[in-house]
């Protein structure tokens, strides 16, 4: 439970951090809240030889409303999101999702940017940011670019981020009155990580579903937007029959992971059940 040796650097600004990573290359890692990286280093799954501590870079810690978007700095903690009055008012599902993460000690230091960059397929944020159609802003010393969330999660623990890039911001569209969203996770009893989690954002046109973004995590190696389920829902009445029918399509044709706690068949079953619950929660039926 002791990490391999590493050199420690502290960055005081985004620029300083980006310069350090440019110089060090792939042997270095950013240290934000450290809630995933440090445990992995302790069991030596991760062995970065250099750590660039960005946890005190205050300029990356903010939540602001900018037109149709909420902008969240990468170093904003889970606890700040959970308690933010803007988030609670404009994107309540994100506040709820942040609240579901681990325990209060972890939420006090863990950051949304760190969690997303870590791209753990069982983490809480991925299905929620997928459903909310977020945009990731990544920055290197050379450039800044925007990555649509649909292109962000590549593999288990691999996100669309280059070795010299830092995730600086998450942009999330503000919820409109006819948009409904919800998130539910079935957590592993010991670790708290999701066995299955699901988030939906439904756009209503009176009684009918106009648009639907349905996203899953936990039971697949990469969190994903279930387009089959989403397409099925479009134009259907927002009722229990629709939900039940749609649930049959959940994870169709997808490879589902399993382990000795929850095998693949059970997780597939769970995903359908959780989808039904999330939809009912979102639509308040």
């Amino acid at each position: 439970m002791i990490p391999a040796p590493f050199e420690y650097y502290k960055a005081n600004s985004t620029d300083e951090a980006l310069k350090l990573i440019r110089d060090f290359g792939e042997e270095a890692k950013f240290l934000a809240g450290g809630q995933s990286l440090i445990p992995m280093m302790k069991v030596r799954f991760a062995r970065p030889t250099k750590l660039i501590d960005i946890s005190k870079v205050q300029e990356l810690r903010y939540i602001s409303l900018d037109g149709d978007y909420i902008k969240i700095g990468g170093l904003t903690t889970h606890r700040e999101l959970e308690k933010s009055s803007i988030i609670i008012e404009k994107i309540p599902v994100l506040a709820h999702c942040a609240h579901e993460i681990a325990d209060i000690q972890i939420r006090n230091v863990g950051t949304i940017g760190g969690s997303l960059a870590h791209a753990d397929p069982s983490a809480d944020y991925p299905p929620v940011v997928l459903a909310l159609n977020a945009v990731i802003v990544a920055k290197s010393i050379a450039q800044e670019r925007e990555i649509p969330i649909n292109d962000f999660f590549l593999e288990a623990f691999t996100a669309e981020l280059r070795p010299d890039e830092l995730l600086v911001e998450i942009k999330i569209p503000v919820m409109k009155p006819n948009e409904k969203a919800a998130y539910i996770k079935i957590g592993h009893p010991a670790t708290g990580f999701s066995v299955v989690n699901c988030a939906v954002k439904i756009t209503l046109d009176k009684e009918k579903i106009e648009k639907a973004r349905v996203a899953f995590g936990g039971f697949v190696t990469v969190p994903y937007l279930d387009e089959k389920v989403g397409e099925f829902l479009i134009g259907k009445p927002a009722n229990i029959d629709t939900i039940t029918q749609a649930s049959e399509l959940v994870a169709e044709g997808r490879e589902v992971i399993g382990d000795y706690y929850a095998d693949a068949d059970y997780r597939r079953h769970l995903a359908k059940s959780v989808f039904v619950r999330v939809m009912k929660k979102a639509l308040e039926i």
Binding site: Y261, A262, D263, D265, Y266, H269
Partner: peptide, 8 residues
């Protein structure tokens, strides 16, 4: 008696 066994 884990949850998966109820669906086997």
């Amino acid at each position: 008696i884990t949850p998966d066994k109820l669906f086997d």
